[in-house]
Amino acid sequence: MKNILFVLNIYPGKGGIESVTNTLVEYLCRYFRIYTLSLSEIPEVTKPNGIEQSFVFPGEDYDKNIAFFNELVARLNIGVIINQGMFLHISDIIFNAERNRKVPVISCLHGMPMYEKHIFWNMPAVKAASRSVKRKWRIKMMFNRCKEYNNLLDTFKKGHQRISAESARTVLLCDEYVSSYNKYYDIVNKVYVIAVSNPLPQKYESVKPLKWDERKDEILFVGRVCEEKRVDLLLNLWRRVKNKNGWKLVIVGDGESLDELKELVSRHKIENVDFRGYTETPETYYKDAKFLALTSKFEGLGMCLIEAMRYGVVPVAFNVSDGVKSVIEESGGILVKMDDNRKFVKILKAITKGEIGDERMSEMAYAKSMRYSINTIGPRWVKIINEVVED
């Protein structure tokens, strides 16, 4: 039985990458011995039973982390390394000059290609800059002359080129991402760039959705409550729905923006909003709701969309990426042009008036979710792992 090492930024944790890792571990542990290694952890979060042992890097010292990684790979006789997230700082450790090159690496991008274009303004140094400096940067960007922005893009481009060149496989979230990834990052080994969607957890296999008229009049948001998810925008859009007709917007999750959002609701007296906090069992909310709303600034795939659809919940989201589009198309859900806030509000109003939403849409959402079954995607992972060992 081969030994597999998942290497992550945080594990265990509350994010999408950590949740997907749990799902893969629960399936792959039938065929392989699973170990995990991460830079940090959230100890109170439950890990799946299929993990042999979890490790955390010793600290922030780069050289010590490399030595720890190389020693661990040798001591555990690791057969395959799975680079979860393709974070540049972790990839630098994985692909260090002293590593055992006989151990193949599968690198998995859990976001959208070119997402670095969206994170520039969230970087600490950029956020701390004065308004006048930011204004100069914006003007320079119009002429492709913003050195800080171009340096960021160049760093990511070189990073992805190196990761792809040294990985046995580079795994993206959907077929639509493959061509854009290869083209934008000028990838040489295109044949080894493949698409495998994130799977639903095993516990979703037996789900039988409620009928539409048995559900509550609720619109869900499920995920991290942070700037990139733009829950503040969702709340402001909901605020513009004056007659809510008993419908509720239910926010499930926590994060650095939670207190700020609660204050926003209180200050503007936004009605019919419930904050439910973080949960390891979001299905508690999926099973009763009718719609799920996603207003993210960027999104790789949106596992909350797929999870909700398994329960027959109809998704409504901005068209922020090919990944989100690939999930919502043919699902009965509604895809809104990016930043068309007026259209999003119009849809929310139609929902609360009963003009949108029925059993047919719910059934389509459930049917589309079947494509993301772990019993379909799990065997693909087993095949990929065995292939890279044999290459």
Rank of each mutant, 00 (worst) to 15 (best):
L235E: 13
L237E: 13
R239Y: 15
R239K: 15
R239G: 09
R240F: 09
V241M: 09
V241A: 07
K242I: 11
K242E: 13
K244C: 12
K244N: 11
W247G: 08
K248G: 06
K248F: 14
K248S: 08
K248Y: 14
L249V: 12
V250P: 00
V250M: 02
V250E: 01
I251Y: 10
V252S: 02
V252A: 02
G253L: 05
L258R: 15
L261V: 10
E263D: 14
L264Y: 05
S266K: 03
I270E: 12
E271C: 04
N272P: 11
N272H: 15
N272G: 14
F275S: 08
R276H: 07
G277S: 11
Y278Q: 09
P282Y: 13
E283T: 11
T284H: 14
Y285L: 10
Y286I: 01
Y286M: 01
A289N: 14
L292Y: 01
A293W: 07
L294R: 00
L294G: 00
T295W: 02
E299M: 05
L301H: 05
M303Q: 06
C304Y: 05
C304A: 15
L305I: 02
I306D: 10
E307M: 11
E307A: 11
E307I: 13
M309I: 02
M309G: 01
R310N: 05
G312N: 13
V314W: 03
V314M: 04
P315Y: 03
F318E: 03
S321P: 12
S321E: 07
D322Y: 08
D322M: 04
G323Y: 03
S326R: 02
E329I: 09
E329M: 10
S331V: 05
L335S: 00
D340P: 08
N341P: 03
R342S: 13
R342G: 08
R342Y: 11
K343N: 13
K343G: 08
F344H: 00
T352Q: 07
K353Q: 12
E355V: 05
I356G: 07
D358N: 15
E359W: 11
E359R: 04
R360F: 10
R360E: 14
